[in-house]
Design a protein around this nucleic acid. Structure first.
Length: 269
DNA sequence: CCCAGGCTGTGGCGATACAC
DNA sequence: GTGTATCGCCACAGCCTGGG
């Protein structure tokens, strides 16, 4: 079986890294009990894991050399930049989000549209779209930290069920993490899927970006769960700062939308 | 023994990415 | 273009458990 070393990967571009990994995975034998949909994830993680500690150490050195992004102000700016980019993009996408009243009446796609309840129609589609989109925002914010790797951004590879790989404070073993928004994001049927995806990896973690959503709906048997500050702390990121930026961002999106007047269209008169 | 609350599984809706 | 899988969140019901 062939393994990769950090020094093989570091000089390469993300896509060249992907190519190298994919050339190497043929030598990996997958245990029979691993389901076929997860073979690729298993192989990638097997080949990659030995290289990860040095890879992350290298990221930490680079970060330190240019004055770490984890320093209070730098960190806040980095989080704000991600939130700003997100909200700008989202606000731009909103006008195309809600179908015209004529279309809604002709073919209502849910009960709110059927009833002509415009406020509910619009709020529903915006908040659903927003919560879906924010799911990937947490991954990008996590990637600010030098302790984390984004398989997609850093390796142009998707590891099923793994949003981020982190090596907390540069010590310990790389941990494969699935990030959700809230503790109750996952529901029963999907819970098993997350479990099998994460159990491929010896070091794994199920994380919720916020401790909201009531109680966990992920059983976590054999898989550690963390939420909110406990999660972001692993990355050296300050939860209070994050929460503050996220709240501002959501309110900004709401204001931008209300200013267009669309929310009350059809209700006002 | 009862009840509240946690955990788990089922079912539902909407958006999107990707394969065919 | 159509179908499928995967992502998001919500509601509910049944079961278990621990405390009064």
């Amino acid at each position: 079986m062939q393994f990769l070393q950090a020094s093989d990967l570091i000089p390469l571009s993300p896509s060249a890294r992907a190519q190298l990994v994919l050339e190497t995975i043929d030598s990996v034998k997958v245990p029979r009990k691993v389901r076929s949909e997860l073979h690729l994830a298993y192989k990638i993680s097997t080949v990659l894991t030995p290289a990860l500690p040095d890879f992350i150490q290298h990221q930490i050195q680079i970060d330190a050399a240019q004055g770490t992004v984890l320093e209070r102000i730098a960190q806040s700016n980095a989080i704000a930049a991600e939130c700003d980019q997100f909200s700008n993009q989202f606000i731009n996408s909103v006008p195309g989000l809600v179908r015209s009243k004529a279309e809604r009446e002709a073919a209502p796609s849910n009960l709110y549209e059927m009833a002509g309840a415009d406020l509910f129609t619009v709020s529903n589609s915006i908040s659903r779209k927003l919560s879906t989109a924010m799911g990937s925002l947490w991954e990008r914010i996590a990637d600010i930290s030098p302790y984390s790797i984004s398989p997609e951004r850093d390796f142009h590879l998707k590891i099923t069920g793994v949003d981020s790989i982190i090596m907390s404070h540069g010590s310990g073993l790389p941990t494969f993490v699935q990030i959700k928004t809230q503790r109750n994001t996952l529901t029963g049927s999907q819970s098993n899927r997350s479990k099998t995806e994460l159990k491929l990896h010896d070091n794994r973690l199920f994380a919720a970006a916020f401790c909201t959503g009531g109680s966990w709906t992920f059983s976590g048997s054999g898989i550690r769960r963390v939420c909110g500050a406990d999660f972001w702390e692993l990355l050296g990121l300050d939860y209070e700062t994050l929460e503050s930026h996220v709240k501002q961002m959501i309110l900004k999106i709401q204001t931008a939308y209300m200013d267009t007047g669309r929310v009350t269209e059809g209700v006002r008169k």
